[in-house]
Write a protein that binds this DNA or RNA. Structure first.
Lengths: 354, 354
DNA sequence: GCAGGAACTGCAAACGTTTGTATGACAACT
DNA sequence: AGTTGTCATACAAACGTTTGCAGTTCCTGC
């Protein structure tokens, strides 16, 4: 391990002529006096090769810092060891991965995947009206499988691709009978819980803040709307773009317009909730005194706002783990069922609690 | 373009027997009645091939949803179009990519890289005492170049690898004469500015909160310490681990121990600052009335705390852009110089301002 | 002492591209 | 008309692995 030079048996300098850098199996084979096939097997640690020879070859490889070319290996073995993680930007024009929910999920996915020995290939995809954005990734032989961070408004495209490309798991909504495997939260229930909590805490006029074009947020809206109607409480919908600079302005305008009446705000995500909080603070409205606010996601930063944010928790870490497990099942040819996780109310300081 | 069937010249159904799925250039070549070489050139859009033939082949490819196998392509052309983005976890045992600074930088890097037509391969590397963690990535022929998100405590390893592997750019510190290209903030200046601002705003007893083993944070500490000494203000150093659950506890303990005297806290990062803020709030100490707090990074979430966080801004987006540009220069064989960006004080609500 | 296995190892054929060179056709110039 | 040149395409050699199959050696049991 420690010193290598000075030992004597090594040929680190001047042996049988200038042995250039060892770049290929063939080079190493020549050095070891065996065939490339044997070297390949030895490095793969297969038992087909004599233990002693294997050790010798591995030592030689280490000494010369040799690493087999992955492209060649992958081409031949038709297995890349790479999972594509794709973020469909969908309707959002702003071309950013920087959304904290995406990043959080990505972090957990990356952890799980590397844990399982996979490499992660990150792609930001901008749907273009065809299914090309996805098939470019699935069909290139570059990845063994694909993980989708969100469905955006591309449900049909994903279905179409999944019908002929098996190893694909998406974070998002599950609709009865869909073919692609999805892991996500029960957003309708989540929306409902949020509205019910607000109403139970005394809110009498609600607003839902979020752009409802994406499937998931649309479901949250529908859940909230249903709960409000059942309770006979008025609820309005205020679309908020996710592009962060617009967001503040839009929220300000919305708050302006609906100034007095509102006393309960359901934000479609924690990110929106944080902006709402700040906006209300600037307007001098007390939270939760004048207005109660509830978020969605329970990102790490939700507990750091002032007051800490009441929110609907999605099990992001658990979901990431499930996504990877299901993908692995699919890669092995086994079926994988979609999974809908129950959302959980986390009461903190922005609602009057129960 | 529009309809293809019914024209007559196409063989989309029933022609010369069941033309199975088109998987290789050879398949397509047979269909088009040309050689694989021509198909390859046609799909690459090279001018060596007759415009008409090229169109025909491209149309055929589209029709059959053919995509050339990337592994084969990359093997042959020795160019992968992939950039490895590596997060060295270094001294931190906790194996998480989820640090918000990392994720923010990663987001920008991914945006810049995909913009330039590169794919992004994400690796979480756990340094193991050797340089293997890095060479495994650089030496595998899997990526064209490597971007390091932070140097952790692996400065020497990075230097060693960079001496024989050119296309490598790191976010982090620049030391006189280093061989690897680094892009980062002048952390010493940043630490100094933070301390000076606190002192100018009336702080008389400072604390620096952060683990100073990593190069960058160590520099921030040195800058702050120097400024404090010059002003004759006492400053203490409180190591804070970055593992988020420990963090809160450690901060609470530290605050306990140094209870009364402290009136100025320099957090080594915004994340730490947010935890400090929350902790102080729980203890009932007013910010900035009793204690002033300043962060470092200016992450998006810095403006969302209550009160909004005064911090030292690093140009993360600009830095990401620079990293990618420098990497591209290196990939083209040109030299690339390290870059040290000036930090900027952003005064918000957690200090008494000036 | 010999047949029948084990246990290893070598050989060579893929994997699916890209690309340098050769070939053929046809136009243009002398 | 012969030569030169251009253009379009075919041919075939890489790229560096993995892996089925076929040897080779050596041992075991009869």
């Amino acid at each position: 391990m420690g010193h290598e030079n000075g030992g004597g048996s090594n040929n680190s300098s001047g042996d049988s002529g200038a042995t250039g850098p060892v770049r290929t199996l063939a080079d190493l084979a020549r050095l070891a006096g065996v065939s490339t096939g044997t070297v390949s097997r030895a490095l793969a640690g297969k038992s087909l090769v004599n233990a002693e020879t294997r050790e010798r070859i591995q030592a030689l490889a280490r000494e010369h810092g040799f690493r087999p070319n992955q492209m060649a290996s992958k081409l031949r073995s038709k297995r890349t060891g790479v999972i594509g993680v794709v973020i469909p930007l969908g309707h959002e024009k702003r071309q950013h991965i920087s959304d904290p929910f995406f990043l959080t999920l990505l972090g957990w996915l990356a952890d799980e995947l590397t844990e399982s020995g996979y490499d992660v290939m990150l792609s930001r995809a901008i749907p273009d009206g065809t299914s090309d954005w996805l098939e470019r990734i699935t069909g290139s032989g570059m990845v063994d499988g694909v993980l989708l961070i969100g469905q955006s408004d591309q449900f049909e495209v994903i279905e179409a691709v999944a019908s002929h490309y098996r190893p694909l798991v998406a974070w998002g909504a599950y609709r009865e009978g869909q073919v692609h495997c999805a892991v996500g939260t029960d957003n309708i229930a989540g929306g409902r819980i949020a509205a019910e909590h607000l109403i139970a805490s005394g809110a009498r006029s609600l607003a839902f803040m979020g752009e409802t074009k994406g499937i998931e947020i649309n479901e949250r809206w529908r859940g909230a709307e249903a709960a409000a109607q059942e309770a006979g409480v008025p609820i309005m919908r205020i679309p908020i773009s996710l592009a962060s600079d617009d967001m503040a302005r839009q929220i300000a305008e919305a708050a302006q317009a609906a100034n007095r009446e509102l006393d309960g705000i359901i934000a479609a995500s924690d990110l929106i909730a944080m902006n709402v909080l700040r906006c209300l603070h600037e307007k001098g409205r007390a939270v939760p005194g004048d207005v109660q606010v509830i978020g969605f996601d329970d990102l790490p930063l939700a507990s750091m706002t002032m007051p800490p944010l009441t929110t609907i928790r999605q099990e992001i870490a658990g979901g990431a783990k499930a996504m990877v497990e299901k993908l692995k099942a699919l890669l092995e040819g086994n079926p994988a069922e979609s999974m809908k996780m129950a959302p959980r109310l986390v009461v903190r300081g922005t609602t009057k609690g129960a």
